[in-house]
């Protein structure tokens, strides 16, 4: 260990850090783990293969997936425009991207529900022109999750795009590639890991999201009821085993997701020779 002996305060700082971490994060999280391990395997399976629970997981998955892919597309365009094109008012718009991080989820929830409900500004327009109802359907969940997911995508792609070596694009152009070819063969492959990371972060956040979704979702069992809401419902009925089983499964899923993402990124980086 090469450590400058002159710097003071190592022991108290580390002791406080570890103690506080253990007290606030590790012990509470371990309560979920131990309570889950105490569950009977058959009881756990019974809870998880319940039709309503399966439906909630399917809805959570599909809406998060759809929302994160849509957020990925728009987020890519926004990041591209923010980094590459000069235009008036860009600073303000760029600062606004972080709004979903800063706005409390309950506020986002009620305001999105107000906008997209059948009588709301956008909701009325969509129903009148396309006969499309967004609020109180799975579509509403997707809208809320796009709102939540967009900063994850933009803020992951932006720095990579800023560091992007434009000489590669110029070289390709000099060798006669069209702008479309440059985009498909140079830009997209290099940005793909960042896009994938942003989309996965949005997806992971979307599965666990609660506050912004429950107002616009309508929460119809089997139709628009998300997995986190089911945890709350089970808790309100004092079904601790049920709530714990669902929570445990959700944690396992997000853990596997993060693991898979890490492995995929390592492979992508190896292929492009950056290690």
């Amino acid at each position: 260990m090469t450590q400058s002996s002159i710097m003071p305060g190592f022991r108290p700082a580390l002791a406080f850090t570890l103690g506080y971490l253990t007290l606030i994060v590790l012990i509470p999280l371990s309560s979920l783990l131990f309570t889950s391990l105490q569950l009977d395997w058959n009881e756990y399976l019974d809870i998880m293969i319940d039709r309503r629970v399966l439906a909630a997981f399917r809805i959570s998955f599909l809406t998060s997936l759809a929302a994160s892919v849509i957020a990925g597309l728009f987020g890519f365009v926004i990041a591209w425009v923010m980094v590459r094109y000069p235009f008036a008012g860009k600073r303000v718009l760029d600062a606004l991207i972080d709004l979903p991080f800063a706005l409390p989820t309950a506020v986002a929830g009620v305001v999105l529900a107000t906008i997209y409900q059948p009588g709301g500004i956008v909701g009325k327009w969509l129903i009148d022109n396309f006969g499309l109802q967004v609020a109180y359907t799975p579509l509403g969940i997707v809208v809320a999750l796009i709102f939540i997911g967009i900063p994850f995508v933009v803020r992951t792609i932006e720095p990579v795009l800023q560091e992007f070596d434009t000489t590669m694009e110029e070289a390709a152009a000099c060798l006669g590639a069209s702008r479309l070819q440059v985009f498909a063969k140079i830009i997209l492959p290099n940005l793909f890991p960042a896009v994938l990371t942003g989309v996965s972060l949005a997806f992971a956040r979307g599965i666990g999201e609660y506050g912004s979704v429950i107002f616009i979702a309508g929460n119809l069992p089997y139709v628009s009821e998300i997995a986190p809401l089911l945890i709350v419902i089970k808790l309100e009925q004092y079904q601790y085993a049920g709530a714990t089983s669902i929570a445990f499964s959700m944690l396992i899923v997000s853990f596997l997701l993060l693991l898979g993402l890490n492995l995929l990124q390592r492979r992508l980086r190896k292929r492009s020779g950056q290690i």
Binding site: P28, S31, Y210, L229
Partner: peptide
């Protein structure tokens, strides 16, 4: 480990404290 609370769903963050301090908790 410091980043861990970010990857836990808000509802699950509430649940773990119910499991600790709720009437049926530890």
């Amino acid at each position: 480990l410091i980043d861990l609370p970010f990857s836990v769903s808000p509802v699950i963050s509430g649940l773990i404290f119910v499991l600790l301090f709720g009437s049926q908790g530890w």
